[in-house]
Design a protein around this nucleic acid. Structure first.
Lengths: 231, 231
DNA sequence: CCGGCGCTATTTGTATACAGAGACGCTCGA
DNA sequence: TCGAGCGTCTCTGTATACAAATAGCGCCGG
């Protein structure tokens, strides 16, 4: 694996997991020393992060981890909803019923996963990712895929703003099962509608649960130069 | 301006204008020599092109200009339609009537532009870009903006597949005027519908006019290593 | 005491040298 | 004559040295 790939994966993981918080400065020498690579591959990694929307150039000098707030989550979903609905509609038309039938069954039985602690929740999220993958493959549209990649990455970051509870996850599993069944039946309109309902509920959950546990409005605006992960 | 920016702009322009045809190899030493920059900024330019979907790594070694065919145009529009419809819907809600009123007038009077030869057509496309910009600003959604940037870039490339004729451009101007009026009136549903109609007509025109004048199926598939712009 | 100008130090941008990996071609054997 | 294997050679990946620019800070003048 190339050094630039390792640097990219490492930084990406750090940002998604909030080990590098929004606003953190990604200085080239500092990060290259921390990750044990030279500045050249590190710069390539930073370019990729910028293209992906996880980092942004900071007024002439430096690169900072992009902010992600509940205010932006609404913007995120405003784009995600039409794209995901388009994706499942296309997937329903292309017809790969066996795959989605199996996925529907697994979502219908996902309650046990959700009750199995944190590792179970991670496995549930992996199942969701499997459905996304299957939809992408069935839709078979490279432009759609690329547009969704970045949005989904941001979404993983957002999850930290509001820890999902079991009730919401159980409801989410049901919604996903519904989507899978609609795709399986080749009903694009229904799949799209089910996806819209699901994303609406997800957004509602994020917005309400988020403001309870973590009020981003309280975040100080000035210290854009929060430094993290020095050593 | 940085050398990497110049290299990026230059390569991007070369690709969009078909001076660098799909399938062309972008060898680092060759291109850095041609553009008069070192390999380091050139590599950064290539990264950006890859992120933008204008180039792609080629099986382990080398970077090639991505293909763009009428088959892919359909995929392109399958994503563009929901995104542009979402954008104009948001723009209609945000209400910046003065801007869109003026744009609507200019589109209504765009017939003279279209009849004014190639430079007039270029000015018409610039007007379309102005409307796009106004919509983006009114929508005020960074994620939507980023997703559309790449798609619109590809669209400019596609225009070469089917040279627009005056009838189509005149109809297009009318459709754009309709969109602007709907946004101006704050009618999101109508704006979205008008956009959908417009994009449907655009796609139809591309597909029919394209197959008449330039049959991509005749393109040889083997010589992926077409070298261009050596000296 | 406040504001502007200039210096310095740090950080980014660029060039180049070197190393490693992969592809092409040549040769040898069947 | 064709295929496989090895060697070479070119091209990419990485590191480092150097240059340029910007931001912060201090000093000087009003």
């Amino acid at each position: 694996m190339r050094a630039s790939d390792r640097a990219y994966e490492s930084l990406r993981s750090d940002i998604i997991s909030w080990r590098l918080e929004p606003g953190s400065v990604l200085a080239e020498v500092e990060q290259s020393a921390r990750l044990g690579v030279s500045r050249t591959p590190l710069r390539e990694a930073l370019s990729r992060l910028i293209a992906e929307g996880l980092a942004a150039p900071h007024s002439g000098r430096g690169v900072v981890v992009t902010e992600i707030s509940l205010g932006l989550v609404a913007d995120l979903f405003a784009v995600r909803i039409p794209l995901e609905c388009t994706a499942v509609r296309l997937a329903a038309l292309r017809r790969a019923p066996a795959v989605f039938d199996a996925l529907g069954e697994r979502f219908a039985a996902a309650g046990s996963l959700i009750d199995a602690g944190d590792s179970g929740q991670d496995r549930y999220y992996a199942l969701v990712a499997e459905l996304d993958d299957a939809v992408d493959r069935a839709a078979g549209n490279p432009y759609l895929l690329q547009a969704q990649r970045h949005l989904r990455t941001q979404l993983v970051r957002v999850r930290r703003l509001a820890r999902d509870n079991r009730e919401r996850l159980r409801a989410s599993a049901g919604e996903h099962a519904q989507i899978a069944r609609a795709i399986c039946a080749g009903n694009g309109d229904l799949a799209s509608a089910a996806m819209q309902v699901h994303l609406h509920n997800s957004l509602q959950h994020l917005l309400t649960a988020g403001t309870d546990s973590y009020d981003v409005a309280d975040q100080p605006e000035q210290p854009h130069y929060r430094k993290e992960l020095h050593g």
